[in-house]
Design a protein around this nucleic acid. Sequence first.
DNA 1: GATGAATGAGTATTCATTCAT
DNA 2: GATGAATGAATACTCATTCAT
Lengths: 200, 200, 200, 200
Amino acid sequence: MNRDSSRRRPTLRDQQREAARAAIVDAAEELIAAHGLHGAPLVEIAKRAGVAVGTLYNYFTDRDDLVRALFESRRLTLRPMLAAAVERGRGLPFAARLRAFVVDTFAAYDQHRRFLKVAIEAEHLRPNNNTIAPDMQKALDEIVGEGVAQQQVEADVAELVTDVIWGTMKASVLRRIADGRPLAPAADPIVTLILRGARP
Amino acid sequence: MNRDSSRRRPTLRDQQREAARAAIVDAAEELIAAHGLHGAPLVEIAKRAGVAVGTLYNYFTDRDDLVRALFESRRLTLRPMLAAAVERGRGLPFAARLRAFVVDTFAAYDQHRRFLKVAIEAEHLRPNNNTIAPDMQKALDEIVGEGVAQQQVEADVAELVTDVIWGTMKASVLRRIADGRPLAPAADPIVTLILRGARP
Amino acid sequence: MNRDSSRRRPTLRDQQREAARAAIVDAAEELIAAHGLHGAPLVEIAKRAGVAVGTLYNYFTDRDDLVRALFESRRLTLRPMLAAAVERGRGLPFAARLRAFVVDTFAAYDQHRRFLKVAIEAEHLRPNNNTIAPDMQKALDEIVGEGVAQQQVEADVAELVTDVIWGTMKASVLRRIADGRPLAPAADPIVTLILRGARP
Amino acid sequence: MNRDSSRRRPTLRDQQREAARAAIVDAAEELIAAHGLHGAPLVEIAKRAGVAVGTLYNYFTDRDDLVRALFESRRLTLRPMLAAAVERGRGLPFAARLRAFVVDTFAAYDQHRRFLKVAIEAEHLRPNNNTIAPDMQKALDEIVGEGVAQQQVEADVAELVTDVIWGTMKASVLRRIADGRPLAPAADPIVTLILRGARP
DNA sequence: GATGAATGAGTATTCATTCAT
DNA sequence: GATGAATGAATACTCATTCAT
């Protein structure tokens, strides 16, 4: 009576299902970004997504699962971008590579401003749980590690350098999202400053 | 309605009142640091403070007022410390002054680790509302401004420099609080790195 | 500041608390008897008890706890009655003792008709969990055991005899509660019949 | 609206329809027996029956109708068995007839253990509504009535005798189903005991 | 007819706030 | 003032029922 369900092309229903799921996740992102991780009732999320509450539970087992899905989904989008940003600079001298990386990353982040706010808030509450931080950490480790190998970064400050970069990026992201300014223009000056130091 | 309370020496009753108030604020700090801004019911805070829920409302008009009081209280403690840190270095060359400032600040912060967690979490939810950020901003503005005047910092990156410092400090604070490590040892390397740049 | 709370006579507040608790349990009993173990919303129970929903949670951790408390409370009332009914006949010949026991038990049950309906229904869903069945079983075991010792009951049907008694009692209870008839008058004929058999 | 469906031989389609209906009822029985009258969501029943929820509504107007159908179906199966058990003993002396009846009944019940659990639970919630109780009552009334006619049972305990039999049977059924033991072996001892009384 | 996603009323539970003692 | 029980609005979650495909 049933078509084989393991090897079939996505049916129309599947596509709609996926669309609905995405709509719900988007709505959650929007409302959570606006009101915080605890300030977005499911009824509101449902309303914003154009569905009824019960529908949420056809896609997610509970509130936590929805939030987790939001993080997973964005992480799935952002991770390849980070990876690409890491790859693209492979072979370049450290300074050029770091600059390219930060520029690319901010470009990618600019398309996900709403989520970044959520992600950075969440970092305190659900540490390292599907956050973007570990991915960023990994990317920076690789790049700064290369810098050490190229003798462009002293080994004993390598970890600190990644902290400076990631800390500064977060600060910039928060400030610029709050102000409604784009992230991209911040990339270049940040890298320049970090590379050559605060003193001229 | 009462006798004027602004200009008489504190009676014993006033002192008790003040002590109770402080106990409540401390309890709030502790529980909010442990469970997040939304994970600390008033009944728990009261219990921890050794009073009944109803009593909270003799000291604070509502939950929000209590939280605001927590921030105010800590801000009141930390602001003079920051100011002192700013003052102490007055007249020093920029590099030395910045170093002294970060060292002093981390020393002060080390005594308020719990609150720092709360404050950094709150920054996302209630931006610039009684947070420590504006005070920090002001202090750094002054110090970095001096650096510009001393021609130790280029004017057009002044704002960015403060971002780098504050961003890096926050990153360090979070990581070290999470790890249970003291903040103080992080001060020196951070300043050195920021001053001379990532490249040797 | 606080009175010693471990060794004080029940205060007025304690008494009120107990009264409120009892009112809630009574309301639960009434509504569950009327609409079944799943047919009594907490809001209704609260309303019937004359309190708000939230109040229930000052006395019971959740719905299940309230139901458990209902069973515990009634069991606590009924168990001593059963025990007394067992004691009272001690030393009597088996037949007289069994008769006295059933008479006493039905007298006690008559005062708790509502709860009996609940208890008998619950026996299927929460087997042996704070039900009256185990207490009854124990009582009958003792009495019938004595009958065996007195050679008034053959050993190999002892267990079956208790089944017959308890089964018949339950059947009578259900029928008579449904019909609004008292239980007491059923006691005597039941025992007579069981003792001498169905045939004249 | 359709062609008259009452007087034509069952088409293939009718048979399939009937099979599907039966599968649904079976699934309902299984899940209700396992989780109680309120613990079996329609989605689960549908899944177990191998159909979609919506399909249930092509066979039953609502949940209640499905449950009613379950009871009707089993009643339709069990009633003739009871009737046969009643008939088979017609003409026998009371004792032999009662024995035969209980033996036959337990044999029949053994094939419907799952349903019996449901039926006995339901008796409390929806008394006399399509339960097996009334059929049993009728059968016992007839047999015990005959016993009275044969002067093997005193008229004034006739009703009570049926209570004893039915009560004891239910107790046995529940205990044995819970233990996973067959019902049949219980029949003989029960009847013997009831007939000759508890005393030797 | 069959499907299963969507619906939303119904219910349990939490917690800031009030107020009688 | 202090107490803590009472309040009820707010919220998460369930599930019978509907209906577009």
